Simulated scan of single mutants.
Amino acid sequence: MQATQPLVGKETAFITGGASGIGRATVLRLAEDGFRVVVIDRNALQVEALVAELVQAGYDAVGHAVDVCDRSKISALIDAEARVDVMVCAAGIGPSCAFDAISDEDFRAVLEVNVLGVFIASQEAVRRMKPGGRVVTVSSRAALGGGGFAHYVASKAAVVGLTRAMAMDLRQRRIAVNSIAPGFTDTGMTRAMTPAQHAAASALEPAGRPAEPHEIANAIAFLASPRTSFITGQTIFVDGGKSLGGLGL
């Protein structure tokens, strides 16, 4: 689904899970910031529509309908670009399920997308990155704990740990690796909740509402910028302050 040819002098950002939710908002924000954006997502129709929208608006964009866990395809699409400056790992799944009802298959599926997918995309990117490259993972406030989705909580806690480990391994190469941990955000994933569940969850937020995807994308863009490349190994919670506690919530 290539829409334009890569420009050698232009910074290029890859975004997994880039066709919807936080990933889509990040694609739009990074395109506005002047990056060539490479959209990676399993949903071919959404990828095609987003790339067409970006190109029509005059942005430099390309899209690939690829599973983030397919290493050979991830490797090939990265090789097709002239440069690798930023990798944003936003692909993820988060089904809700009581702890005693989670099957082995369910647990493995969540870990595969949320952790292995981050590992593969990050590793393939940093193998080609020059000093000054940036990796931004998307973890979650759920890394602090939560009920009803233990497999998701475990996966996002793993992303935080993986982010720190990557940052330590890559700091001598001057590649920055950080994570954004969103709180409850209004995406297709959370809209899968019943209206009553969504309203109840929103009411528990300090602002009385979920975050909008663009609010999370703004934080991702901060860490994706070459101006913040001295920050590494950090996890920034973007949750309206709920993770601070002390609000009676």
Rank of each mutant, 00 (worst) to 15 (best):
R171A: 10
G133R: 00
N178C: 05
T163G: 08
G161L: 12
L111Q: 13
R134M: 05
A165M: 07
M129N: 05
F107N: 02
F149E: 10
G147I: 02
S179W: 05
A150T: 12
I180F: 10
Y152A: 11
V138R: 03
S122E: 09
V118L: 09
A150K: 01
V153A: 00
S103E: 09
M189Q: 13
L144Q: 14
V113H: 08
S155T: 05
V159N: 06
N178P: 00
K156L: 07
A150R: 02
A157V: 02
R174A: 14
R134E: 04
Q172Y: 11
P182M: 00
R128I: 02
S139L: 08
L162M: 15
G148F: 09
R174D: 12
V136K: 01
D169G: 00
F119W: 13
A125R: 01
S140F: 10
R141T: 14
M129K: 02
G147Q: 11
A142D: 08
L170P: 07
L116N: 13
R128L: 10
D106L: 14
R134Y: 03
D169E: 12
E112H: 11
R128T: 07
R173W: 00
D104A: 13
I175K: 03
G148A: 08
A121Y: 03
G117N: 06
L162S: 10
D104V: 01
A142T: 14
V160M: 14
L116C: 08
M166A: 10
M189S: 12
E124L: 06
L144Y: 08
L111T: 00
L144G: 08
V160I: 14
N178T: 13
P131Q: 06
Q172W: 11
S155D: 08
M129C: 04
G147D: 10
A142I: 12
E124I: 02
R173Q: 12
R128E: 04
P182R: 02
L162F: 15
L170M: 06
Q172D: 15
A181T: 09
D106W: 09
L162Q: 12
A101W: 10
A176H: 03
Y152F: 14
V138T: 09
V138C: 05
D186G: 04
S103N: 10
G145C: 04
G133Q: 05
K130N: 11
R128W: 04
T187G: 03
